[in-house]
Design a protein around this nucleic acid. Structure first.
Length: 561
RNA sequence: GUCCCAGUAGCUCAGCUGGAUAGAGCAACGGACUUCUAAUCCGUAGGUCGGGGGUUCGAAUCCCUCCUGGGACGCCA
């Protein structure tokens, strides 16, 4: 499946290829190798609907002036059967193609017939991709950074799915290691406190109020049963209880945020299955591990990384890196051809060594993509809200959804490139005003629904696009809107290639803008039956496209506002 | 000190992997509701793309260098 724009591009590329071939045959253009032909959409409408820089690329190797090369190409260019009305040589040597304005109208019947599938492209060809995101410690609540990761990861996964990949969403549960030990000590302290003992939560422990809540729940169930128990057993019981409770809470909140996972993968299971051990053995066999000061080190420097990294501490306990290597090995063993991790900027130092480890395991490190998102700065009342996990003082994802709503929150996270340091203004996100772009987009959808409602209330059916005279759509706004609709499949492809959901957000904003402009200058339902039918097809195609694009970002499409 | 990210309109940011005259939104100013939703539209104004070099037909985009802000540099995760 591909879009109208891509088809025209392909037709023009083919015609240019033939023309270049003919020009070389006749000796008018002498080049060793034909340059790659690219047909672009010019930014300025005055420069045509499509354009190519081919003549400029030929100029140097063929030793002729670019405009001369363009002339020769044009003499050999056969454009019969295309929508091209005229061709011009412009500027330093661009060849500009001007199409019959009606060409974009062809997109409309396709959109209506493809419906929820409009915009799908087959970039992925069914290849298996895994997107791992959020993967927060299951020891607490989700915060703003996790929220950004959730919105980003989920949208990337949806976009890749729409682009023809077989996508799996995964949450890596860090239920092993140091922080779990630490968590156990904090839980134990709170447990004992609640039962009247005078103990302190460790300095480096978890001081959040949510931990106290968890223990209250535990005490309600188990009472003082573990007061005199063996501390080791007591902690492991508390940890087990708390982890499952926390994990359920995380699951629930993410679902409210519109995010569901295919797989919840336990770090602990990598230890239990022996995968960590096996992976370290494998790396030893490959000669990638050495011992230094009683610790085992991974030779990351052999893979172009600045320094080596400890995988097993001198006390014999593997590091997080060790289980992470085992985890990534497991991903590849499960048959994923492309592995995508969404991490916070505080983990970016981990990227090169993880790629090094993937290479050491015998996989191509370029099949691992790590999307690094910069941290979120939260504003409220014009001031920065300092978030401190230790003190248990931060805005949770749950509060965010409650306060600003899922749609506004998700849009705000996804409208910016992951690279940008995001300033999240709580008041702005919550504001139901024109300062908030989500509503601008949703409003476009609601407006169309209102028109369609009106139409059916008048007892009229939705016109069949194949029986409507779409050539009545001649107004500038009508054609601009249809042109934008035709762009959608290409936008999906770009967003997928660049792992860039912000492209979809931007596209939506532009599309909504064109709908609003059209709406304000033309009526859809008029006395002119034929024209009304054509415009109904246009707005219905817009509704479908808005719906599909918003779906990729996990944003709802209200029919009334 | 080393590495990563950012620096574009008053503010928040796009800029499709090198294209033609650098774009949106907000804020400012001036207009448009007896008509399918004014959460909207139309118009005006706003720029040495952080500075300086380089690469070429052509640079906001690629390279070098400097400046500013954020982050990472642990036998933490």
């Amino acid at each position: 499946m591909s879009g109208l724009v891509e088809e025209v591009r392909a037709d023009l590329t083919e015609a240019l290829t033939t023309a270049l071939e003919a020009s070389r045959q006749s000796g008018a253009i002498r080049v060793e190798v034909a340059p790659e032909i690219s047909v672009e959409v010019p930014r300025e409408k005055d420069n045509g609907d499509f354009a190519t820089n081919l003549a400029m690329l030929l100029a140097k190797p063929a030793r002729i002036a670019p405009r001369k090369a363009a002339e020769i190409l044009l003499q050999n260019l056969n454009l019969t059967g295309t929508w091209v009305e005229r061709v011009e040589i412009a500027g330093p040597g661009f060849i500009n193609f001007y199409l019959d304005p009606a060409w974009v109208i062809q997109a409309l019947p396709r959109i209506i017939s493809q419906g929820p599938d409009y915009g799908r492209v087959d970039l992925g060809k069914g290849r298996k991709v895994q997107v791992e995101f959020v993967s927060a410690n299951p020891t607490g609540l989700l915060h703003m950074g996790n929220a950004r990761g959730a919105a980003l990861g989920d949208s990337i996964a949806s976009i890749l799915n729409f682009a023809g990949y077989d996508v799996s969403r995964e949450f890596y549960v860090n239920d092993a290691g140091n922080q779990i030990e630490n968590f156990g000590l904090s839980l134990e302290a709170r447990y004992l406190q609640l039962l009247g003992r005078n103990v302190q939560v460790p300095e480096e422990g978890y001081h959040g109020e949510d931990v106290v809540e968890t223990i209250r729940g535990f005490v309600a169930l188990q009472g003082d049963k573990y007061l005199e128990a063996d501390p080791g057993e007591r902690r492991s019981t508390l940890v087990k209880y708390a982890l499952s409770e926390k994990l359920e809470a995380i699951k629930r909140v993410l679902e409210e945020f519109g995010v569901t996972y295919d797989v919840w993968f336990s770090e602990q299971s990598l230890y239990e299955s022996g995968a960590v051990h096996d992976t370290l053995d494998y790396l030893k066999e490959q000669g990638c591990i050495y011992v230094h000061e009683d610790a085992q080190w991974f030779k990351a420097t052999e893979f172009g990384v600045e320094k080596d990294e400890v995988v097993v501490r001198s006390n014999g306990i593997p590091t997080y890196f060790a289980s992470d290597i085992a985890y990534h090995r497991n991903k590849y063993q499960r048959g994923f051809e492309w592995v995508i991790d969404v991490w916070g900027a505080d983990h970016h130092g981990h990227v090169p060594r993880m790629k090094g480890a993937v290479a050491a395991l015998g996989y191509d490190p370029s099949t691992l993509d790590v999307v690094i998102m910069q941290l979120v700065r939260l504003y409220k009342g014009g001031e920065i809200v300092r978030m401190s996990k230790r003190a248990g003082q931060f805005v949770t994802l749950e509060e965010l959804v409650e306060e600003v709503g899922r749609d506004a929150a998700r849009y705000n996270f996804v409208m910016r490139s992951p690279d940008s340091h995001l300033d999240f203004d709580l008041d702005l996100a919550r504001a139901e005003t024109n300062e908030n772009p989500v509503y601008y987009i949703q409003y476009a959808h609601a407006r169309i629904c209102s028109i369609l409602r009106q139409n059916s209330e008048q007892g009229e059916d939705m016109p069949d696009p194949t029986e409507v005279n779409l050539s009545l759509l001649k107004e500038e706004y009508e054609l601009a809107l249809a042109r934008k609709l035709a762009d959608f499949p290409g936008e999906v492809a770009s967003a997928a290639n660049g792992l860039a959901p912000q492209r979809i957000a931007r596209y939506l904003h532009e599309l909504a803008g064109l709908l609003h402009s059209f709406y304000n200058s033309h009526r859809v339902i008029t006395d002119d039956q034929e024209l009304s039918s054509a415009r109904l097809v246009l707005v219905n195609a817009t509704r479908i496209t808005l719906n599909n694009a918003l779906g990729l970002l996990g944003i709802t499409t209200p029919e009334r506002m």
